Simulated assay, not measured.
Amino acid sequence: MAKTYGPLIWLQLGSTPVVIVSSADAVQLYRQVREDETAQIIRKIQEANGSVVNMTDLLVTLTNNLIARVASGKTYGFQHTVRRIAKATTRFSVGNYFPLFTSMDRLSGLLREADEIFKESDDLFEGVIEEHVNKKDFGIKGHDLVDILLEIQKDVLNLKDT
């Protein structure tokens, strides 16, 4: 499959997007990022000097930082937003099960919280996009997923103009 379609393949399986990496070279592309983030986690464990360490927090941090750095070149403030999203999605929503009672979600503050999280996420992503559009002004080097998505957007807009 890699010979026909290349080392990275994007599939849409129902509503779930899937990326298949079929090349060791493509996996090794971000090896340094993985090593850097893993080293930071190990340092945090060592700095604890034998006291209790919340491994869940460390692993969430590791995962968030890896995804953020591979996708956008640096960690930004994703971790705080991801934690808020995770916490909000575990809350019970009456409206999800009984649409006639959606007003209960409004009264409980769930809808207000969701709106705040969406705004926070939107502001965060707008900042990431702005930095990548104006890379020279922000001193950003390299080529990451955000750059690729911006190139695709530009190509699509150019196709519409023709």
Rank of each mutant, 00 (worst) to 15 (best):
L29K: 12
K119R: 14
G50Q: 06
L13K: 04
A24T: 12
R91F: 08
M55W: 00
A68M: 07
Q28K: 13
A86R: 15
V60A: 05
L111G: 02
H132Q: 06
N158C: 09
E130P: 00
Q40D: 06
T162G: 14
P7A: 08
R91K: 09
A68P: 07
V53A: 02
I152F: 09
F118Q: 15
L111N: 10
V70R: 02
D144C: 02
D144Q: 01
I9V: 15
T38V: 07
V52C: 08
K154R: 13
V21S: 02
Q79A: 14
V60T: 04
Q32D: 15
N64K: 07
K119M: 14
R43Y: 05
F78C: 11
L110S: 11
T16M: 07
T102S: 10
E126N: 10
I148N: 10
S15Y: 08
P7W: 01
G6R: 07
K135P: 00
L149F: 05
A86E: 15
Y76Q: 03
L111I: 10
I129P: 00
N158Y: 09
Y30G: 01
K136G: 08
A86I: 15
F138Q: 06
Q79Y: 13
I140M: 06
G77H: 12
Y97R: 11
A71M: 01
V18I: 13
T61Y: 01
V94F: 02
S72F: 08
R34T: 01
V156W: 06
R112I: 02
L110R: 09
